[in-house]
Write a protein that binds this DNA or RNA. Structure first.
Lengths: 350, 350
DNA sequence: ATGAAAGCGCTAACAC
DNA sequence: GTGTTAGCGCTTTCAT
């Protein structure tokens, strides 16, 4: 690869100054049409490609935004990786984070923003997040993907949007879906339509949205005079935890009527685990999920769940971030995104 | 947002020079441990985030690579976008390009490379590709996503890997899957096992891999003494073309025994269209695909196809590109990736 | 309308 | 082991 072509080369060839070359590209109205033509011809002939680094340095902006995700979104477990022909693992289908990423990509495209994808295995690997933050004008991160110190550090430099998070530090925005109401609707359905008495809950409390789901579930149960079960830990991205939770259910003297999971991913795994134990859903036990991922639509019967506008979350995040980058502070922190109860068959409905 | 924290601030606070700060981060072995500690402490206290632009400019490398895709990968048709609950459109599932992108992301992650995602609607929107090319150390592009001039321009500045392309210009590498052999195997199966006589072929010749598929198909047919049909145009990403092709089949006086499609996406759409016309696959007519996308595994019966190692293609591209960026020229242009015939039920097998 | 020149924040010789 | 300093390629006043 020969020496890189720069503005200087183009300027020389066009017989103008570098400033004119720069203007020709960025402020065409300030330059005589003919000059522009000459400059463009020279640039073309030379195969000029402007350096984004130089431009970013000079402008103080890169024109790109970053998306920071947990690694489990990106890195499949080793076994799965080998078996290219696993039959129907949920990982075959787009998961929550995949759908959100898709929304982010789409919105970036339509806005002409470049998208940097980052992420790491542990939720707290400093070098990476900083690396991403240093490259972009704004950052979107999944809730919990950033520790407080890193959030602060990143938010101190550029606008940050946390997905499903909460405004933890000044300068950090968040896209919030009303998870609580969705879970309330679902829980009510289980209580009022199916008259279930005993519930189990598989999930976690690691992020605000997870907490909202649990809150919606437990408070609805309490209001209805049902006893609130202890939460059984289950993490999306770690199916083993879900399977273990189901295992503990099976060992209890009595089975619950319904297993409420705080993600579809957990629900699908749970249904599978129950099936292996000889239990049929929903005949022997009801199971519900949360999110609305594709895998849930494909199982038979279809998963009863709460649908989040996943791609919409991604799009909203980009909108919010773009506004923040422009300095146009949006009035609403989170656009009011809604999670809607979605009836399937796993709750016992036919 | 206050003034940005730079090396100067950190240096001052740590009581050292900026060079030392730089070294502390990039060549820790060259700096006294205690100095490092001081520098890090200062950086931490200040919330220092190094500017990738400045670094990239100084180093002449950005540490990122770009992925450039057609827009149809990214932007769904408007109708589809509205109907968040379309039931089973193939777009719900990862398509070829999605799977490849996934492989790219995974490999980037494990190599600590940042990934820039670009793309555009028309295959030839100069500003975008140049923009991406200016930001990264190397570029991966889907075959046909880059026009010759842009390919040249990009390849003149940074290494470029074309997926499923061919080495069109010096400096451009390519990841190639043996599409021809896969299609030969599939076609033989149709001839030798099913004894089909009359064939239709839906596809295109826009990229080297598509041409290889057609070549494998048509030459195998010719060898077997079957007559080679005219290709009916069908483009993945434009289901209407596929539907139209099926329409023209239906109008012909006699139906072919088998419809060979050069993508799974086309095959799935074709099966659908045939179904609407009252024809059952494979009872009335056989249909085959190419790629091995998830949607093909889900239909009933399962699609007979040729599986490409899609994620593997993405991974290979990153490997190749990384080597090229390092200046370590890989011996093999394309790692020899293989496409394997995958028997389903749509060919007539049970 | 165009040019000269001062940075943008960092790296990497080179000197101490 | 640490400091000085000259760029990296572009943008952007300020003159002309």
């Amino acid at each position: 690869m020969a020496r890189r072509i720069t503005v200087y080369d183009v300027a020389q060839r066009a017989g103008v100054s570098i400033a004119t070359v720069s203007f020709a590209f960025t402020r065409p109205d300030k330059v005589k049409p003919e000059t522009i033509k000459n400059v463009m011809a020279a640039a073309d002939a030379l195969g000029y490609v402007p350096s984004a680094s130089a431009r970013g340095l000079a402008r103080g902006r890169t024109g790109a935004i970053g998306l920071y995700a947990y690694d489990y979104v990106l890195e499949p477990p080793a076994e799965e990786r080998e078996a290219e022909d696993v039959e129907r693992s949920a990982r075959l289908f787009p998961l929550y984070a995949d759908e959100v990423q898709r929304g982010v990509q789409l919105e970036c495209r339509s806005r002409g923003l470049a998208l940097m994808i980052g992420g790491n295995r542990a939720p707290d690997h400093l070098p990476h997040i900083i690396e991403v933050a240093g490259r972009v004008d704004g950052l979107i991160a999944f809730a919990g993907a950033l520790s407080m110190p890193h959030l602060e550090q990143a938010a101190g430099r550029i606008p940050v949007v946390e997905l499903g998070g909460e405004a933890r530090v000044p300068g950090a925005r968040t896209v919030l879906v009303d998870n609580r109401q969705g879970m309330v609707d679902l829980t009510r359905h289980l209580i009022e339509v199916h008259r279930y008495e005993r519930f189990a809950y598989l999930g976690e409390l690691g992020t605000p949205e997870f907490r909202a789901r649990w809150d919606g579930f437990s408070s609805t149960l309490a209001e209805a005079g049902r006893s609130v079960p202890q939460m059984l830990p289950a993490h999306p991205g770690n199916d083993a935890t879900t399977a273990a939770a189901v295992g503990s259910l099976l060992q209890a003297p009595t089975l619950p009527d319904a297993v409420v999971c705080d993600t579809d991913q957990a629900a699908v795994v749970a249904i599978d685990a129950l099936g292996r134990a000889g239990l049929s859903v929903p005949r022997d036990i009801a199971v519900t999920g949360f999110d609305g991922i594709v895998a849930g639509r494909l199982i038979e019967p279809r998963l009863t769940t709460v649908r989040q506008p996943m791609a919409g979350v991604g799009r909203a995040a980009v909108r919010l971030l773009a506004a923040a980058v422009e300095g146009v502070e949006e009035p609403s922190q989170g656009e009011d995104l809604v999670a809607t109860f979605s009836l399937g068959g796993t709750c016992g409905c036919s």
